[in-house]
């Protein structure tokens, strides 16, 4: 297209700005909105929010440098999110995709969430096309691999997971402009995964650790979840829930916010049953949307000894 280039010589090279107002960039790019939303919508997770803030600042500066012609390469953006189940990794990944999109590091900003089953095939020759299909779908956005350590099964040397890992590593290296990969999982198992796959460790720039929620944070999360569904707790129920959270944490298979969500689902079930069985006459909106203490204390968690069985 040399003819076109000659026709508009003033278009090449593009004008380089001489100064960039970071504050203004921060506001016009929409990064500010994403960070504010993150602060408002997500309870707790202070260290995670701090890391995201830092990452956003880095990317903003990097973008400014790129505009001024000081940097040319795409920075490595692949991340790993480690933490116990139910600590908000998927939710944060969604926000991260939005953030990267607004900063212009990814073109589309969608999140493709997969696990081992989506990447690894069942017979020889099945894995590569499957992994490639997923990678193609994720291009222009973020590929979120949940429980990534299942990809690597050292006990079976013929496991097809290794093939998926190789393709992933290749694309993570060669097509950094096209997609961002986020690996997620429990901290210890992810550490072991990185130890046995040094290729991943070196290609991942940002490691973000998700702490467990405190009891107070879990209670606020419960209130928010109920509020979104137009339910509320009466005072004894609130006390019962506080006690429930403390007890539930001692039970095995505690999954932070996810356990709380399940507990609330069961409480709603019990509330519905209670209303159905005790009501004689019309019920008003307040009765239909109040969770009372007996809906929560009926949980098996209260009747079980700590460290017994699953507290569902």
């Amino acid at each position: 297209m040399s003819a076109a280039a000659e026709a508009t010589p003033e278009a090449l090279p593009p004008e380089l700005p001489t100064a960039i107002d970071l504050r203004e960039e921060f506001e016009t790019s929409g990064v500010k909105d994403v960070l504010e939303e993150l602060d408002r919508d997500l309870i707790g997770l202070a260290p995670v929010k701090k890391r995201i803030r830092e990452t956003a600042a880095l990317l903003l500066v990097e973008r400014a440098r790129r505009r001024m012609g000081l940097a040319h390469d795409t920075p490595t953006l692949h991340m790993s999110f480690t933490g116990n189940p139910g600590t908000g990794k998927t939710t944060v990944a969604l926000r991260m995709a939005d953030l990267l999109h607004r900063l212009g590091y990814i073109r589309k900003g969608h999140l493709v969430s997969v696990t081992r089953d989506d990447l690894v095939g069942q017979y020889i020759g099945h894995t590569a096309p499957k992994t490639k299909e997923i990678l193609k779908k994720a291009m222009g956005g973020v590929l979120f691999i949940d429980e990534a350590y299942y990809l690597y099964r050292p006990e079976n040397e013929r496991d097809y997971g290794q093939e998926a890992i190789e393709i992933l590593l290749q694309v993570m290296e060669n097509q950094r402009d096209d997609l961002v990969v986020i690996l997620a999982g429990y901290s210890q198992r992810m550490d072991r995964f990185f130890e046995s796959n040094p290729g991943f460790r070196s290609r991942i720039a940002h490691h973000i650790d998700f702490p467990d929620y405190t009891d107070g944070e879990l209670f606020r999360i419960a209130e928010t979840m109920l509020g979104n569904q137009n339910y509320h707790l009466d005072r004894p129920a609130a006390e019962a829930l506080t006690a429930y959270i403390t007890k539930r944490r001692e039970q095995p298979h505690f999954a932070n916010a996810r356990s709380i969500r399940n507990a609330l689902d069961r409480a709603r079930l019990r509330q519905a049953n209670r209303l159905f069985e005790t009501a004689n006459g019309p019920l008003d909106a307040a009765a239909l949307s109040t969770i009372s203490a007996e809906d929560i204390t009926a949980s098996r968690v209260f009747s079980m000894k700590p460290r017994d069985k699953d507290g569902d």
């Binding site: 073109r107 193609k136 779908k137 291009m139 222009g140 956005g141 402009d177 096209d178």
Partner: peptide
Amino acid sequence: PMFDNPDAAALMME
């Protein structure tokens, strides 16, 4: 045919 790839990078890779 690539039905559900939102970005052209997928086709460029192929």
